[in-house]
Nucleic acid binder design. Structure first.
Lengths: 464, 464
DNA sequence: GGGTATTTGTCCGTATGTATG
DNA sequence: TCATACATACGGACAAATACC
């Protein structure tokens, strides 16, 4: 019958409910069977009538049984022909493989421990939690907090020559989110999007995911080969002009103007991913494409590379035309970035901490960048050639040895040096005869660079 | 020279620093100019020498100036060819229309001021910022933090009868994000998605946005009319079984089983949006559809309705089959939820604060729910009929007056009572002859309900 | 067929342990 | 620590439906 355990922490009425439900789903209590009255069952189980009643009420509200007043409760007719009767209780944890211990980490996108003013941020977060409780309890504008958008706009105007109003600025939860929104907007414009070859795999993935055809365009020394664009069907192109990923090349002003011209001629859009605009080590950052063609460029920027990767805040500047489309849908959507991230960030920008943080970080990264290049050249000489210098958080190496990149990465890992796997940077097959390696230097300490590179020399040259 | 304001909350050294920096970037202080010595400047400004020195140190560390020992500070040579000299200040702000002042707010989704343990959260956030700095500086698993996923899984198992492993749990930045990912996964399964009519406009929007055809399915008293599904081409359906939005109806177990059967028969998927599972005022929350058909249900849950709308954390449980597809793409994607949100939330769940918070909130909402119903019946009697009782954060009213819902909302707004506009709940035209009104009671204080409803009676009945 | 006894769901007040502030 | 509130569990009172004579 029913097994009720008074010592069990789950209440009696709930135990009874569960067992009844099980019997009904099982077919033990078949359709239209009359249940025992609350009195009889309570007598039988030696519990209160009300306890039985509570179980019945729950079953009633879930539709397992039907109640006829002054008559009784009857089991509902269920169609449970297919439903699996027993679920094995699967384990919580998935067995994780134990990786090699990492001593030196060249992971891309990581930042080093002293890079972020944690206590400052703590203060700002606390301030936010104390003073903005009313706003925390509500949903927010899809575009993002007005204050933060103003601060970002101010920054973009001063440092990136962006030409727009706040209405065109949109806060998102990362570059991926930006691309997804861009796809949404471009769906009605084109079915083909051109991208750089080689280029950022995340963009390729996002576009494919939204059902676009992909048109790869090759990169020359001065950036994207705009000529190839003219012969393609694409009415949109994704570019990283200020520091082409992964080659690090800078699109020349001539190319930029040609690209802008192409966009105006074909009534097409340019997606400018300015992912590492802050990070230039030789000269001041080059001003944006957006400034050249404000009506044709979807500008994307991010705080991940410079501030904190785990913060998940990026932004985009939309052409007026597209901004209007977004505004129409904005009312029924919510912003993806938590208020208690947006507000502290706004204050961080407003009080000038951001600018000083960029300067400080840039100085530090510059040193690491120089050291890394120096050590690579000292240890490997002509065995490697370095591209993508003077900017960003990574270098691209061509290792002139007759081995695969996978081997180089695996040997390094065994010696405690983590090197990221460049997942699908090239859409077509990689053209170079030599393996290429991507070294991120954001996460490694300055003093760790020389020993790490020495280890690489040892394990790589020893294996030959 | 320099204008320092002691009453300003920004520190003196910072004011000085900012003004110096501005002059340097402006070109007012040109390259290699020697700055005034800290002694002279401090005398001139009548502030401490240390204050001046702090400003100088800041400029030094950011590379604006160069310090020569026993000589002085000199302005660095900057490449400021591109730095904009003067930006025409286009207006930042878009002119906002002045709305009627809101005295009583029935906005849907809002929560009331005493609903969230702010100090608790502050403690947990601080803990996170102190103890997890290494992790904050890195990108994270697309699936979300393992610890948080485990805690959510534990909760879902105990309270929602969810059947799955951690590998199937995915953290997202909101229901919208969940739906977007679901679309991504369902693209290869079907081109048509069925939704409830009337139903949640956000879901409709998301599906349409991803290029799906929409098939509306009517709602009867016991929930979705599954029969209509069988005759449609849809291989996926979006439902809110535990509290249908907006009618508040509960899908009976019969319908649930039929729906599950349909999914197994047609090899289709069910999207179960359990957006307000915690919030039942009469009986215990009804267990999930996912428990009945774990291989066919994409389960979506959220912390917005019960914890904090602006937190932007939701989660989804994927069928094993779909989880594997996501896992393949996960490595090249980043999680959209900031670590400094995920970690505090994990601790919040782990330490049991969440459960007690749910209990407390539920208690409070229950009172408001009861009061609201009582007041409506007292004031309006048979003039209105209420649906969607006993659950959720809103009631649906049918006002039996010969006026439009827009008028009712406008009249209320003029009297200081905000009522949300139900944007496109019905895809086809609304079938009812009477205007229907959605009242959210999450954001209004208990004691404000009686006066608010009295005002509604006055303004609505007076206009007739 | 009508009256009565019984069964039944429903509603009420209350005791106890536990969580909350 | 103590007062409060709530979930759980209990028994009794009531009225409607049903069964039986």
């Amino acid at each position: 019958m029913f097994l009720l355990n008074a010592k069990d922490k789950t209440p009696l009425y709930r135990q009874l409910y569960q067992q009844l439900r099980h019997k009904i789903l099982n077919g033990e209590l078949s359709s239209q069977t009359k249940l025992l009255s609350s009195r009889k069952l309570s007598q039988e189980l030696r519990i209160s009538r009300n306890t039985v009643d509570m179980a019945y009420q729950q079953l009633l509200s879930e539709g397992y049984i039907l109640g006829k007043p002054r008559s009784g409760y009857y089991v509902e007719t269920l169609h449970n022909t297919i439903i699996p009767t027993f679920m094995e209780s699967t384990q919580l944890e998935s067995p994780s493989e134990v990786p090699d211990p990492i001593k030196y980490n060249f992971k891309y996108g990581k930042l080093s421990p002293h890079a972020f003013p944690f206590s400052q941020w703590q203060r700002l977060t606390n301030e936010c939690l104390r003073n903005y409780q009313e706003q925390l309890l509500d949903y927010h504008s899809f575009m993002g907090e007005l204050g933060l958008r103003k601060e970002i706009l101010k920054y973009l105007r001063d440092y990136r020559d962006i030409k727009c109003t706040v209405d065109q600025v949109l806060i998102t939860s990362g570059t991926e989110h930006c691309l997804s929104l861009a796809c949404e907007l471009l769906k009605s414009v084109t079915s083909t999007i051109a991208i750089e070859e080689p280029g950022y795999a995340g963009a390729h993935f996002a576009f494919k995911n939204h059902g676009f055809c992909i048109q790869p365009i090759t990169i020359s020394h001065h950036g994207l080969n705009v000529k190839e664009l003219h012969t393609s069907a694409a009415k949109a192109v994704y570019v990283t002009p200020s520091h082409q990923f992964p080659t690090g090349r800078i699109m020349s002003i001539t190319r930029r103007l040609r690209l802008a011209e192409w966009a105006y001629e074909h009534n097409a859009f340019i997606i400018e991913d300015d992912y590492s605009s802050h990070l230039r080590y030789d000269v001041k950052p080059i001003s944006s494409l957006q400034g050249l063609a404000p009506d044709k460029v979807i500008y994307i920027g991010s705080f991940s590379k410079i501030l904190l990767p785990s913060l998940r805040v990026a932004y985009m500047v939309l052409p007026k035309e597209l901004a209007q489309i977004i505004h129409k849908t904005a009312e029924s959507r919510a912003c993806a970035v938590p208020f208690m991230i947006q507000k502290p960030l706004e204050l961080f920008l407003q009080e000038g901490h951001f600018e000083s943080h960029v300067r400080k970080t840039l100085r530090h990264l510059k040193k690491k960048h120089e050291t890394l290049i120096y050590e690579l050249q000292e240890n490997f000489g002509d065995t490697i050639s370095i591209t993508g210098m003077n900017a960003g958080l990574h270098l691209l190496l061509q290792v002139k040895l007759p081995v695969s990149a996978e081997d180089l990465i695996a040997w390094a890992a065994k010696a405690g040096v983590y090197i990221p796997i460049k997942n699908r940077i090239w859409i077509d097959s990689e053209p170079s005869p030599y393996p290429s390696i991507l070294l991120g230097f954001g996460g490694i300490a300055l003093e760790d660079i020389p020993p790490a590179i020495r280890i690489l020399r040892e394990v790589w040259l020893d294996h030959i």
